[in-house]
């Protein structure tokens, strides 16, 4: 019997810097599998965010550009407009995409830029040590909301998939998670669709992935999974929000 499970070619053979229980690694793997399956590694350019995934290029074995905080969709626009033959994706966190970079993602999506965004929503700023994000849940404690997010003061968490779906142009918007195997298969399918639509030159595509941050949530990896199911998935509903066909 041959090998049934191996490292995708689009992933590098290297140590991870992500924390135990963090889902960035799973998401990286799914994206890499999709890149392999579509056979696009050598014409793919990734755009790394500023956040825990800033070093994404240490894991993906393809060309990469590193954006400033929030600006990945503008960079991807620049790459894709001048080289439409390349496959371009951004990989962004919720602070990156939904706070400082909200303008860039909305406009890139609304122009229908033909790249793919993988949006990792872990309801917190991971890299800078657990500050409140626009996606932080009501009452959720962070270092800048030590008594819990006060929605009277800072509003309700932003639902990015729904928000972008309200625009007419963007055509494939989906929200998934990878906290359990049953979700992982669906997430993979969504990512595959997102890249396929790009390869077919159809549309802008965004897959939001509800993720965990045990370190900054102050939980064990297992508790983080339970907390995600009970608190995040009830607010951030999974499913396809828009499809082009």
């Amino acid at each position: 019997m041959g090998k049934t499970f191996q490292r995708p070619e689009a992933l590098s053979d290297t140590m991870t810097h992500y924390c135990p229980g963090c889902t960035h690694g799973i998401i990286h793997r799914l994206v890499a599998e999709v890149i392999d399956e579509l056979g696009i590694r050598k014409r793919t350019v990734g755009v790394a965010p500023v956040g825990c995934a800033v070093l994404a290029y240490n894991y993906f074995d393809c060309d990469f550009q590193e954006a400033a905080h929030g600006r990945a969709p503008a960079m991807a626009t620049g790459i894709k407009r001048v080289r439409p033959d390349l496959v371009v994706f951004t990989y962004q966190g919720d602070g990156d995409l939904a706070s400082i970079g909200m303008g860039e993602i909305i406009h890139a999506a609304n122009r229908g830029e033909k790249f793919t965004t993988i949006f990792v929503n872990n309801a917190i700023y991971g890299m800078t040590g657990g500050q409140m994000a626009p996606t932080t849940m009501p009452e959720q404690r962070t270092t800048t909301s030590p008594f819990g997010r006060n929605v009277e003061d800072v509003g309700m968490p932003i639902k990015v998939a729904e928000l972008i779906s309200a625009l007419q142009t963007p055509a494939f918007i989906s929200r998934q998670t990878v906290i359990k195997p049953k979700y992982i298969n669906k997430a993979k399918k969504a990512i595959l669709k997102a890249f396929t639509y790009q390869v077919e030159k159809k549309c802008f595509s965004l897959v939001e992935i509800v993720s965990t941050c045990p370190t900054n949530w102050g939980m064990t990896p297992l508790d983080a999974i339970t907390w995600t199911e009970e608190n995040l998935l009830t607010y951030y509903k999974l499913g396809d929000y828009k499809t082009p066909d």
């Binding site: 550009q65 600006r71 503008a74 620049g78 790459i79 390349l86 860039e104």
Partner: peptide
């Protein structure tokens, strides 16, 4: 959409 974004469109294109 803004000069902020334009600078990064330039960066992306130049980087390519």
């Amino acid at each position: 959409e803004s000069e902020v974004a334009v600078a990064y469109m330039i960066f992306g294109a130049a980087g390519a």
